[in-house]
Nucleic acid binder design. Structure first.
Lengths: 102, 102
DNA sequence: GTATTATATCAATATCTGTTGATATACTTT
DNA sequence: AAAGTATATCAACAGATATTGATATAATAC
């Protein structure tokens, strides 16, 4: 039986799991839209959710999911909370994905 | 209110949905593993499932999901069914993903 | 023909994840 | 202090998706 790296090697297997976690987060239409919206720069929640045809609280929830995985960062400014891409991490995850599939 | 392409433009919005469909399929640990295994060339199901610690029928099911989206192709050879990457399509989908996030 | 092997299918279940509505927090304005 | 605005949180529900066990199909070997 030949050894297959992504199945037998623990380090690679762990990397694969992390990549899958990343994919699970971005494989949702509204979250992908949020990431696209944020490509043009930081936005507060009130600028994001009307574009998505989503409720405010659901948008907030998706943002928190993205933040938990480090794909976006946020900073409070008065009443508003501005979200922006954590582009370094996002690009890193895309590169890891490529390593598995290219 | 500024227009945001991935939300307002129908064509781009459709592309985004297709990309999300692709992501949903590959955001599963075992399916990602299958794709990795197939990078080293065509394999029959009986060579794949023992590597995955999955049952035969579940492996078969995941393969059918991958095939349905055109990420793998299969050909029967006697009793065995050999699966191989549909690499052209896989790479195309990765490029589309990059278009949205890079 | 029967037995055996490889693969696929199906219904039932379990698990996960998005959504909703209500409410809480936190800041600003008056 | 009270009212209003922006955001977050929570429990409950709904829908989707992975898993399981049993069984079906299809090709080969005897």
């Amino acid at each position: 039986m030949p050894k297959i790296k992504c199945c037998s090697n623990k380090k690679i297997s762990n990397e694969l799991k992390k990549t899958v976690d990343f994919l699970k987060i971005i494989s949702e239409e509204n979250r992908m839209r949020i990431l696209c919206i944020l490509k043009s720069g930081p936005k507060c929640v009130c600028e994001i959710w009307p574009n998505l045809d989503l409720s405010q609280n659901l948008t907030s929830h998706h943002l928190s999911v993205l933040k938990e995985l480090g794909l976006v960062k946020s900073k409070k400014q008065g009443l508003k909370v501005f979200y922006e891409l954590n582009d370094k991490n996002l690009q890193k995850q895309l590169i890891n994905l490529d390593l598995f599939l290219k």
